[in-house]
Design a protein around this nucleic acid. Structure first.
Lengths: 343, 343
DNA sequence: CTGAAAGCGCTTACAG
DNA sequence: CTGAAAGCGCTTACAG
């Protein structure tokens, strides 16, 4: 078991050349079917496993796709990655995953590592504070395909895979207005990022259409995490004129906020209605259940990897593709359904 | 930019041999410091990047660690992976991650892929239904180190990284008993898995010490997910003699169960107290806040990779290590604090 | 401290 | 349909 079997061992035993063995193993069209069967049988018999390093070295490609995400341990990102892994695994590609921890500095280091690891392609969702495309230039120069997903960087000719955040933001806000709300506070993340900027656009558009003036004081930029949710509740409590609704761009933050509001004796949805974002499982297990936007995270991961592999294989050229937009959906639950008081 | 720089280019420009360049780049002790500086400066100047495939092919090692988890998108696993990625990244190792989706069959295929990718080491948390060690034998035969974490397979001489699940189960149950509970239902996962079997042991031990008889009817094996939590609530509602407490081996399941119980008009903690497991962020944002066991997921990931790398580098030999046990902790919150009714 | 040379295991242009 | 040969870019035992 100690010695590794190579194509030379197979060639020797079969009295054919290593070249033929290599071709047979790779299902080359010019090779006789009988030879292929012979070679594959012998390979199995000897316990042969292809040496990817020799093959990569020779072919100058790696069958590896790099992925950089802000963090691994968020509902959205771990679900996107689950989708990515599924497709990559099926297609015989490996994934190298790294996280920027929301810091451009670490993202730059990660991009560097991916470059040195010679990934065949790179999938990126950028950090909160990324404001430069510089660290991705080496990939373009080497014609290594680069696809952005979810949090994208614009104006760089790279395809992106996203949902229509503007539409989703519009639907969330419009829903609240339809429920009779007009003082709608919008809690969001770093507005440099498309996902948050676009949701804000949708929010503003819905206000405009309903002739509700947009107030800067009703737009709060936060870290959008659990702690931020609690702080938001504190700040709301201290307001002389409280909002009657919240549109929060992340479920976990929304849920933390609702929990804190309830502790303060503020009723959701009757005093304040809330709409979140993502359709995190947590949205279904709190009371009241959270109205939210369903985010197709798993599908996004699957499509990102599938597109990358098709592009690498030449099945589908991405050079002219600007964006692939997936469908999101408003899911109405109790947190925004105002109960009419009769009698 | 098209052509890749190699050590030969550096050697030519500096009029030294490629062997010296290679040694200088790898900081070989026998090389003159001045030469090292010269080589490194030139390498930077030319934009040299080492070719890992050539290097791996030659060295017969990969600086890659394989990870197989049941699923990527659970709080615990994505947090473990975040810890793993952090350390691997710092140490210059790559991670290849794949998920078994709780199926032994897929786990076998993944192990195969890892083997063919020639990972230097493998970290595994097994699927619900894994009942064989067969698919890991090839690694042992090739002396590729294998470490289990969280969900481990026993009796195979591989080191494991775990928490003391028995102790945690004991503490959770004992806490409920201290609160005056005695009809404690235990909701768990597949008992073939150490994590669930051990928590059950702890549960039984606490009952025994407090002279409460263990009843098989009070032990429910479920998928431990959100849906299972809802079903558990339904089943409890239908019971003629309801339990006065639940010890549920996963927070997400516990939270879904509490949510459903509340909808049925059953009060938590007064009618039924609940203790979960993991300290998922969701535990803090529901009402009542969930008492749970804090699981050191990030630390587990960090230690797993760190141990693997130290072993590979020869800094620390794992052959004699049986298990590394991390500290877990009971966190008491409202879901198990019974409010005394005065007057 | 440095160099010459072999070899890691594959793939593929060229030839037949 | 098959083979001989070169070469991908590195590392290291051996020699000096």
């Amino acid at each position: 078991m100690a010695k590794e079997i190579t194509i030379y061992d197979i060639a020797n035993q079969l009295q054919i050349s290593p070249a033929t063995v290599s071709r047979a193993l790779n299902n080359h069209p010019a090779i006789n079917e009988k030879t292929k069967v012979l070679v594959n049988t012998k390979a199995d018999e000897l316990g042969y496993r292809s040496n990817k390093f020799a093959s990569n070295l020779r072919k100058q490609s790696t069958s590896t796709i790099g992925v950089i995400v802000p963090r691994l341990n968020s509902y959205i990102m771990s679900t996107v990655l689950a989708g990515m892994e599924k497709v990559a695994n099926e297609e015989g590609f490996n994934l190298i995953i790294s996280q920027s921890l929301e810091s451009q500095k670490k993202e730059i280091a990660n991009a560097q590592t991916m470059f040195n690891s010679r990934v065949d392609g790179l999938l990126v969702s950028v950090a909160f504070d990324t404001d430069s495309f510089e660290h991705f230039q080496p990939f373009l120069k080497k014609k290594i395909p680069l696809i952005f997903f979810d949090r994208i960087l614009e104006n760089n000719n790279c395809p992106s895979i996203v949902i229509d955040n503007t539409k989703a933001g519009y639907e969330a806000t419009n829903h609240l207005i339809q429920q009779g709300r007009s003082n709608i506070l919008h809690i969001t993340g770093n507005l440099q990022r498309n996902v948050y900027a676009d949701r804000l656009k949708g929010y503003q558009q819905a206000l405009l259409e309903n002739e509700i003036p947009f107030q800067k004081a009703f737009l709060w930029e936060t870290a959008l995490n659990l702690e931020a949710g609690k702080e938001v509740a504190q700040r709301i409590k201290a307001m002389p004129n409280r909002p009657d609704a919240l549109f929060i761009a992340s479920d976990l933050c929304a849920v933390a906020c609702i929990s804190a509001l309830k502790e303060m004796g503020i009723d959701v949805p009757n005093d304040i209605s809330v709409v979140g974002f993502n359709n995190d499982p947590v949205a279904q297990v709190i009371a009241p259940k959270l109205t939210t936007i369903h985010y197709p995270a798993k599908e996004m991961g699957e499509i990102a990897v599938k597109s990358m592999i098709n592009h690498l294989k030449g099945t589908m050229n991405l050079d002219k593709t600007n964006a692939i937009t997936l469908r999101s959906e408003l899911i109405v639950r109790e947190s925004s359904r105002i109960i009419e008081h009769s009698a």
